[in-house]
Simulated scan of single mutants.
Amino acid sequence: MSARAGTVRMYEYLLTIDGNESRARTQAETVVNHPTNATDIHATLLHVTTESDPTPIEEMPAITIAQDILADAGIGTDLMRIDGDPTTVILETAEEIDAERICIAGRKRSPTGKAVFGSVTQGIILSTTRPVLVCHTEEQ
């Protein structure tokens, strides 16, 4: 959609929130500070689980932190919780919501960990044609 006068251009982010509060904060702040020409920005906060967790997604501290940061910046959010393989669920969800960007939080790794980089982050980067924002915190 072109950015003509009176035209609203929606820009959709997919944030993959893993439950870590520090990483969720960094992801939300990255989206808030990410330059875009869009006049309307929206974010879907996705939590992928491989085991049953009775906590409602709305009550997860990491989700609440990210949602509050985005709301303070005027960015609307939707929440999704899906059980399954993280890489598959993230890629399918990005396709379903037609995300312009996927925002994931990487983790610091030791030199050995970097050599054996069999992570969700790597799977996403190698399996999508969508731009991926990888942000990290100073924590290990």
Rank of each mutant, 00 (worst) to 15 (best):
96 E>M: 14
13 Y>P: 06
7 T>L: 11
137 T>D: 05
89 V>G: 03
72 D>E: 13
122 Q>M: 12
20 N>K: 12
57 I>Y: 03
81 R>K: 12
34 H>F: 15
82 I>C: 04
86 P>G: 02
86 P>N: 04
54 P>N: 14
23 R>G: 05
81 R>F: 01
74 G>H: 03
49 T>E: 05
80 M>W: 07
46 L>S: 04
82 I>Q: 11
56 P>A: 06
72 D>M: 12
6 G>I: 03
113 G>A: 12
129 T>I: 08
119 S>Y: 06
6 G>S: 09
44 T>S: 08
127 S>E: 13
119 S>W: 03
72 D>T: 08
114 K>T: 08
68 D>W: 07
5 A>W: 14
98 D>M: 04
99 A>K: 01
107 R>Y: 09
52 S>K: 15
53 D>N: 15
67 Q>P: 01
132 V>F: 00
69 I>Q: 01
115 A>E: 09
88 T>F: 03
75 I>R: 05
95 E>T: 07
138 E>D: 14
22 S>F: 08
20 N>H: 13
134 V>Y: 05
22 S>K: 15
85 D>W: 01
7 T>P: 01
127 S>A: 15
115 A>Q: 12
75 I>F: 03
75 I>H: 02
80 M>L: 15
87 T>F: 02
137 T>N: 04
61 P>G: 06
82 I>W: 00
120 V>K: 04
30 T>E: 06
30 T>M: 12
131 P>Y: 02
85 D>S: 13
93 T>G: 11
5 A>P: 04
21 E>R: 13
10 M>S: 10
115 A>P: 01
102 I>P: 00
61 P>N: 12
88 T>G: 02
36 T>I: 12
8 V>W: 07
87 T>S: 09
14 L>I: 03
35 P>Y: 10
10 M>Y: 11
125 I>V: 15
1 M>D: 10
38 A>W: 04
130 R>I: 10
9 R>F: 09
95 E>F: 02
15 L>R: 00
69 I>N: 01
87 T>V: 12
24 A>Q: 10
112 T>I: 14
102 I>G: 01
106 G>V: 05
126 L>I: 14
64 T>Q: 13
3 A>H: 11
92 E>S: 09
137 T>A: 04
86 P>W: 03
68 D>N: 15
59 E>M: 08
21 E>V: 11
78 D>R: 10
45 L>Y: 07
81 R>L: 06
117 F>G: 04
126 L>A: 14
132 V>T: 02
2 S>C: 03
19 G>Q: 07
115 A>L: 14
137 T>Y: 05
46 L>T: 00
4 R>S: 14
24 A>P: 12
59 E>G: 02
11 Y>E: 09
87 T>H: 04
26 T>S: 14
11 Y>A: 10
30 T>Q: 09
95 E>N: 05
122 Q>R: 14
52 S>F: 15
38 A>P: 05
38 A>Q: 05
127 S>D: 15
96 E>K: 15
15 L>N: 00
16 T>P: 02
127 S>V: 12
136 H>C: 08
29 E>K: 14
95 E>A: 09
134 V>H: 01
39 T>C: 06
90 I>P: 00
123 G>K: 06
6 G>N: 10
72 D>W: 02
66 A>C: 08
4 R>Q: 13
103 C>V: 15
